[in-house]
């Protein structure tokens, strides 16, 4: 990662934790997980709370839906680390790889619910263009999505617009397929806290 302090600037107890994780999992902790341990009072602790609430808190959206939103947002930002991480997590959450691959290949023809499609279209536009208008929101609401569901989707979109930016700025190391699968398993078991 860059700056260099994100590679070695952790407290001794944190370095020990990283070593234990590596020993038992056979893999180094992904950079996204390491980042939240650096000066956690500044970023890591509030980030974990916000992201966990958005991704695993009460919502009419399933965990798979929210991980899919994270993947779509990450793709809109062209963030390689987060695309890999949340594509894998969504696939495992749904236990349906073709569903996720179809959405990422072509949102308009993917075999998903109209409300989810309209919501994914809106968060994709918000991420690519930096804003959306009332017309965009009316289209989502007209597809049967509740106002609360829109707010929940916007929280997911916010969490990953921050994380995508940090992943590219701090240059998170992109994992191989097995690494992303292992990370997905962890995220589905433990969440983001």
């Amino acid at each position: 990662m860059r700056p260099e302090v994100l590679n070695g600037g952790y407290k001794p107890a944190t370095k020990l934790l990283f070593a234990v994780v590596r020993l038992f999992s056979g893999r180094p902790l992904p950079d996204a997980a390491k980042l939240v341990f650096y000066r956690p009072d500044f970023y890591g602790d509030p980030s974990k709370r916000f992201t966990h609430l958005a991704m695993r808190g009460p919502s009419a959206w399933s965990v798979g839906d929210r991980e899919l939103m994270a993947a779509v947002v990450s793709r809109a930002n062209a963030c390689a680390f987060c695309i890999g991480a949340h594509t894998a997590t969504s696939e495992q959450a749904y236990a349906d790889r073709p569903r996720v691959r179809a959405v990422l290949a072509d949102l308009e023809t993917a075999p998903i619910e109209d409300g989810l499609r309209a919501t994914l279209r809106m968060v994709d536009k918000l991420t690519r263009e930096g804003t959306v208008g009332a017309t965009d929101m009316r289209q989502v609401l007209a597809a049967g999505v509740s106002r609360q569901q829109v707010e929940d989707a916007l929280a997911v979109c916010a969490a990953f617009n921050i994380t995508n930016r940090l992943a590219d700025a701090f240059e998170f190391r992109v994992l191989d397929e097995e690494g992303f699968a292992a990370g997905a398993k962890f995220l589905l078991k433990r969440g983001y806290q």
Binding site: F42, Y43, M122, L126, T127, G130, T131, V132, G133, A134, T135, D136, M137, R138, L141, R147, V150, E151, L154, C157, A158, N161, I162, R165, L166, A169, F170
Partner: peptide
């Protein structure tokens, strides 16, 4: 400063989307 920039940009996007939702509702 990198974190402040990332959070700031995202906050503007989030606020714009919430305002659009309010108008649509």
């Amino acid at each position: 400063l990198v974190i402040a920039s990332a959070v700031g940009q995202t906050t503007r996007m989030y606020d714009a989307a919430l305002a659009a939702l309010e108008e649509a509702s």
